[in-house]
């Protein structure tokens, strides 16, 4: 029953998103949409997915959109172009999908093809073959390790893409000025800053817990990476970019992101050199199960490194660009009167 309630709420939020003109509200609603769908995933037993969706849909993507809105303005133009052809197209596509649902196995039925072919092996044999309780991690990190490798490369590509679009050579001369602006701005959030300073070690600790706990419960490299990056971003938001930049500098972060991808690939290469197929962890050690454990441990680390560093790269470049724009505007304002 709870799933129907959640779906109805999702529908309400989606309709509200169409109608809203204020982009700030739209972005917040899309965050809520992410959170609601994460709750739905929990109701559907997909705890790992829920964890990720909560961190990404409700967290990182909302945050990034908010940063962008501060640069682009928050109101949407009232005129919609081509609403009727769009409606027609969407209705046709929707009808086709509804038509397609008519022959689907019913919701939750245990005898659907998805539950009787391929999947049973994961459920029945993964304990003997891989030796960890979380089946999703087994599939993700071993049975379909290559998909996860691809996923890591996608996120790496996004990081490089953002760098290619937004990065520029920094002008060191107005660094001081930015620091001054930051100081005046951040003086106000004294309480939040102190609380954050106290919380930060715990957030980082939690990230490590999630990193290592992925074998037994929901969690793993990706979620840990997001949490780690969130901690750094929180620090940067409250103490200013330039302070955060002292702690974490760009070339270093880029190096980490590349190392993550390389580490993941090297796990595959080592198993290949040891006489197995690419990503065959059984060949990493004399004992197959130990090999699987070692392989999964290493690739989870690789994922954590790349994800954390890419999210930091993306956020820093967004914020950097904004800072540069603002300082350009300030210079412009000083010159014009």
């Amino acid at each position: 029953m709870i799933d129907i309630v959640l779906l109805t709420l999702l529908l309400a939020v989606a309709i509200a998103i169409i109608r809203m003109k204020d982009l700030f509200a739209v972005v917040m609603l899309s965050g809520i949409y992410g959170l609601l769908s994460a709750s739905f995933f929990v109701a559907m037993d997909a705890v790992d997915v829920a964890f990720t969706e909560a961190a990404v849909g409700a967290g990182i993507s909302t945050l990034l959109m908010l940063v962008v809105i501060t640069m682009t303005g928050r109101s949407e133009n009232t005129t919609r172009h081509k609403p009727f052809p769009a409606l027609l197209l969407v209705v046709i596509t929707g009808c086709l999908l509804i038509y397609g649902t008519l022959d689907m196995p019913y919701f939750g039925s245990a005898d659907a093809p998805v539950h009787s072919h391929v999947a049973p092996r994961y459920i029945n044999d993964s304990m003997q073959e891989i030796g960890i309780p979380n089946i999703v991690t087994s599939i993700l990190a071993s049975y379909r390790a290559f998909d996860t490798f691809g996923e890591l490369v996608v996120i790496f590509t996004a990081g490089i893409g953002v760098l290619a679009l937004l990065s520029s050579v920094r002008r060191p001369d107005n660094g001081d000025k930015i620091v001054c602006i930051n100081y005046s701005m951040h003086e106000q959030h004294l309480v939040v800053r102190i609380v954050t300073k106290m919380l930060l070690p715990f957030i980082l600790l939690f990230a490590l817990y999630v990193q290592f706990h992925g074998d037994f419960g929901p969690g793993g490299g990706f979620q840990a990476g997001v949490i780690f990056a969130a901690a750094i971003i929180l620090y940067a938001m409250l103490f200013g970019l330039s302070t955060a930049r002292i702690v974490i500098n760009q070339p270093f972060i880029q190096l980490i992101s590349a190392t993550g991808v390389l580490l993941y690939g090297c796990v595959g290469l080592v198993s290949l050199l040891n006489g197995g197929n690419f990503f065959d962890y059984n060949f990493l050690s004399n004992d197959a199960i130990t090999g699987q454990h070692l392989g999964i441990f290493l690739i989870e680390w690789a994922v954590g490194c790349t994800v954390a560093s890419v999210i930091i790269i993306i956020f820093f470049n967004f914020a950097d660009y904004r800072e540069r724009q603002q300082s350009n505007e300030n210079e412009h304002n000083q010159e014009s009167p």
């Binding site: 997909a46 997915v49 849909g57 959109m65 999703v136 996860t148 996923e151």
Partner: peptide, 28 residues
């Protein structure tokens, strides 16, 4: 419950956020 779609969607979520990030930087 079937774990395979969970693993697939974990991958797809990451792909989605990657696309969003790139799209946003284009918007900037």
């Amino acid at each position: 419950s079937n774990p395979l779609p969970h693993a697939l969607i974990l991958t797809a979520i990451v792909v989605a956020i990657a696309t969003t990030a790139l799209a946003l930087s284009l918007v900037i």
